[in-house]
Design a protein around this nucleic acid. Structure first.
Length: 111
DNA sequence: CGTCTGACGCACG
DNA sequence: GCGTGCGCCAGAC
């Protein structure tokens, strides 16, 4: 468990720990942080992560369906897709292919 | 301090 | 299997 004062910092830490070529969900991060159901706060925190000096791989965070719900907030709808494909993650119709296989659960991996 | 909003998630029909 | 509605927590105003 990360004990940073801000909720955002925790989200950033989790997001930065996502392995290369892997993805996770807002709910999984929220669950790991203890907020549980409030996955919206996670996404909102990532919204503030844009433009930070250490690049936050927020493109690896998708919703539970594996859909790139936050693509539009990357300054461009294709940016998020490009980043994922650059890591070997196939994206079709704004959705991660083999999402279940690429899914990385922080609560399970980090604990 | 009350209210609205949001990069979600789940239950229901 | 898809569309709709409600709940969730945290911050901005």
């Amino acid at each position: 468990m990360i004990k940073n004062s801000g909720f955002f910092e925790q989200v950033y830490e989790i997001t930065k720990k996502i392995p290369y070529g892997r993805v996770t969900t807002y709910g999984a991060i929220g669950n790991y942080l203890g907020t549980g159901g409030s996955a919206r706060v996670v996404g909102w925190a990532l919204n503030s992560s844009r433009g930070l000096s250490p690049f936050i791989p927020a493109h690896r965070v998708v919703n539970r369906s594996g859909i790139l719900s936050g693509k539009k907030h990357f300054g461009g709808s294709l940016i998020m897709k490009q980043l994922l494909e650059n890591e070997g993650i196939r994206v079709e119709e704004d959705k991660v292919v083999d999402f279940e296989k690429l899914f990385w659960d922080p609560r399970k991996e980090l604990h």
